[in-house]
Every structure is written in C-alpha cells, then in structure tokens.
C-alpha cells in the first residue's frame, strides 16, 4: 500500500480544481476516493479488542 498515493491524487484534484478544470478534478477526486476505500480495507480489518 503506497501511503502517499491518495495524497498525490488529492493534490492533483485540488490543483485541477484551482485551474478551472472541473471534470478532471471530479475524476481525480473519484480516483482518490477509490484508493481511500481500498487503503481503509487494508488498514481497518484487524479485529477490535472490545465487544460491540
């Protein structure tokens, strides 16, 4: 899991948004979101030490 990757795509999205490229920004945001979900699945699947 490349931890820096969602920050890179997020930075690209923010930059594209600043430059007025809305569609490209939305696409980059979506890529960031997909990576975020994937990284969450990787880092958040250990069992918790409490009973819910």
């Amino acid at each position: 899991m490349i931890m820096v990757l969602p920050f890179v795509t997020g930075a690209i999205a923010a930059w594209l948004g600043m430059r007025g490229k809305r569609s490209a920004c939305l696409f980059a945001w979506f890529i960031t979101f997909v990576i975020f979900i994937a990284w969450c699945a990787y880092h958040m699947t250990d069992p918790l030490t409490l009973s819910l």
Binding site: P6, G10, W39
Partner: peptide, 10 residues
C-alpha cells in the same frame, strides 16, 4: 488527513 483533503476538494 486524506478524507480531510477530499472534503476540502468539495
């Protein structure tokens, strides 16, 4: 922090 960045993009 990534989520904060995504919120900020919105």
């Amino acid at each position: 922090r990534v989520a904060l960045v995504m919120v900020g993009i919105g």
